[in-house]
């Protein structure tokens, strides 16, 4: 589904991704771990099409289409969803109205018929129940006055509504208490299918106890330096990230988890 080949990207002239290679197939869950500043969030931003990154080399394909040639909204309509690390607030725009607009754009792009108001409401109720998202939050202004946890749960609710092919979750677990983490993870587990794929960007192994990944990658200094199965996450939990410094002589300062 997703094929990243030798991806290099700069931000403000500084190289931040230094040759990423990654293959994600439908039905798979990949976890990307790594210390602060390793390029995890940059990878998510580049895939979603944030403007301030300059792609200097490499290719990204989504089901045979060149992702890097698409505007951010087209990537979204093609099925790329980014659950933001810091979701923004948009006062006065109701969550539901926003989702209706987004879904309508996506369905137009995919040449699907538009949902009637009734069908849309039915879908909203079902998805709310699926990811345990309160109706009162759905009707409020987009993320306005939401707690950190509510914002993250809203990202998962949106994910459920928009039914993307590829979901990239950028530290969706950060700032969540244990109950919220369980709700978010349950939601994602219910949304997993043979047709979609997830890339979980996370700092901690904790999330992976709830959402079991098929593959774990370690991102360090702009490159994937090691890949493995879920056991790799456990190893990282035990050893921390310091060993990377010794092994790969990175220039970045490394924080211990």
């Amino acid at each position: 589904m997703l094929s990243i080949k030798n991806l290099h990207a700069n931000i403000e002239g500084k190289e931040i991704l230094k040759g990423i290679n990654l293959e994600v197939k439908a039905g798979e869950v990949h976890a990307i771990m790594g210390p602060n500043g390793s390029g995890k969030s940059s990878l998510a931003s580049v895939l979603a099409g944030r403007e301030n990154y300059e792609i200097t080399e490499g290719e990204v394909w989504l089901d045979g289409k060149n992702l890097l040639d698409m505007k951010p909204e087209v990537r979204a309509r093609e099925g790329v969803f980014l659950a933001f690390q810091y979701p923004v607030e948009i006062p006065g725009v109701s969550n539901i109205n926003f989702l209706r607009t987004a879904l309508s754009e996506i369905r137009t792009h995919r040449e699907l018929p538009q949902l009637s108001a009734k069908e849309f409401l039915k879908m909203t109720k079902e998805k709310q129940a699926l990811v345990e998202f309160e109706a009162k939050l759905a009707n409020r202004s987009l993320n306005q006055g939401f707690s950190g946890g509510e914002k993250k749960r809203n990202e998962v609710f949106q994910l459920a509504m928009l039914e993307p092919k590829l979901s990239i979750l950028d530290e969706t677990d950060s700032g969540l208490d244990i109950d919220a983490l369980r709700i978010v993870s349950n939601g994602i587990n219910k949304l997993r299918s043979a047709d979609n794929a997830f890339v979980l960007i996370t700092h901690y192994q904790r999330l992976l106890e709830y959402i079991v990944p098929d593959f774990v990658h370690v991102l360090y200094n702009g490159q994937i330096v090691r890949s493995g199965t879920k056991e790799l996450a456990l190893e990282l939990e035990e050893k921390g990230y310091d060993w990377l410094k010794e092994e790969f002589h990175g220039n970045e300062s490394i924080n211990k988890i």
Partner: peptide, 23 residues
């Protein structure tokens, strides 16, 4: 804000319209 809406499939013009109407 605009990028957030873009990422949900909404183009820049419509994103501005949504934000302004909300405001």
């Amino acid at each position: 804000q605009v990028f957030y809406l873009n990422q949900r499939g909404i183009d820049a013009e419509q994103a501005i319209a949504l934000i302004v109407n909300g405001y």
